[in-house]
């Protein structure tokens, strides 16, 4: 009985963990800006923050966004007018000139 239970539970566990790893790669975790550090490099995140600065360039824009815990720069491939707006930003954590910033692939207004 114990052997059957062991095999069954190991199988469920193994398959379940594979499923969770797949889901965790597909869905993005919302984090506070303060939590973003080196360990998040190249990982996808979601942040909720307010735009405090905006610089529009030819093919992209750099936003400075702030939440209750900190500030971070967001790099997005379109020109937008989002100053003082609260946004939900999804993107990858990258390093540019020694600083961590978010390379956004999706920006939504809250």
């Amino acid at each position: 009985m114990a052997q059957k239970t062991l095999k069954f539970s190991l199988a469920i566990s193994f398959l379940g963990i594979l499923l969770l790893l797949l889901i965790s790669n597909l869905l993005t975790k919302e984090v506070k800006i303060q939590e973003i550090n080196e360990n998040w490099l190249n990982r996808n995140v979601k942040v909720l923050c307010k735009v405090t600065e905006e610089k529009n360039y030819q093919k992209f824009c750099i936003l400075t966004c702030q939440d209750k815990t900190g500030k971070i720069k967001i790099n997005f491939s379109k020109n937008l007018n989002l100053i003082n707006k609260t946004l939900i930003i999804e993107g990858k954590i990258v390093r540019y000139k020694g600083e961590l910033e978010i390379q956004a692939h999706e920006i939504k207004e809250k």
Partner: peptide, 18 residues
């Protein structure tokens, strides 16, 4: 060791879920 590793991957997956 197997249980330790399985739990480890479970922890990694769970902590990265939204």
């Amino acid at each position: 060791f197997i249980i330790f590793l399985l739990s480890g991957f479970l922890g990694i997956a769970s902590l990265n879920l939204p």
